[in-house]
């Protein structure tokens, strides 16, 4: 189903359109939220809220941006709301974690812990860039900022991550 058709279906509140829409974006949205709020838990609940917000607000979607950009913006806002209500948590890393290329689960834990040391906007920018492979423009649209600002956010995030990694002696 093409995007225009999908939007029409969503605006009609058609269940099949929602099934296709959720199927198309659920992993990406969940991945971003899990990466950003993973340390605090509740990633599934936030991801569900994002899709329910789409159901409620699709009538107001003016199609000036793409559906995915709009969806990621909702995800960012929902996470921000979540952090406003719940305290942001930072996961402490165990000392001297060894960076093993083969141990995917361990790498996931390290990545989540490192992300949890970043401010929210840096978490989003870093996740969207390194995990989802978004362009700076797409990140800028989702974060409602400029491409130049995104470059600065990403640079700062990388510097912070390097420092944090060194602090915990990740080799």
């Amino acid at each position: 189903m093409e995007e225009k058709e999908l939007i029409k279906g969503l605006k009609r509140k058609d269940e099949e359109a929602f099934r296709i829409f959720i199927g198309r974006y659920k992993d990406s949205i969940y991945r971003i939220i899990y990466s950003v709020a993973g340390a605090a838990g509740g990633a599934e609940d936030i991801a569900q809220e994002v899709f329910i917000a789409v159901f409620k607000k699709i009538g107001k979607f003016n199609e000036k941006s793409s559906l995915s950009t709009w969806l990621y913006r909702i995800a960012v806002n929902k996470c921000m709301d979540y952090f406003r209500k719940n305290k942001m948590k930072t996961l402490e890393l165990k000392d001297n974690l060894i960076f093993e290329r083969d141990n995917s689960e361990e790498r996931k834990k390290i990545a989540i812990s490192l992300i949890s040391t970043l401010p929210v906007r840096e978490r989003f920018a870093m996740t969207m860039k390194a995990v989802e492979g978004f362009s700076n423009g797409e990140i800028a649209d989702a974060l409602n900022t400029t491409e130049g600002n995104v470059r600065i956010i990403l640079f700062r995030a990388r510097e912070r991550l390097k420092k944090e990694a060194k602090k915990y002696g990740i080799t």
Binding site: R31, E44, R107, A111
Partner: peptide
């Protein structure tokens, strides 16, 4: 190495029954 760490998160998928 940071990118490599983050790439481990690419395997994260929505839980079963999410839809």
């Amino acid at each position: 190495k940071i990118d490599e760490l983050f790439s481990a998160l690419k395997s994260v998928k929505a839980p079963c029954g999410f839809e």
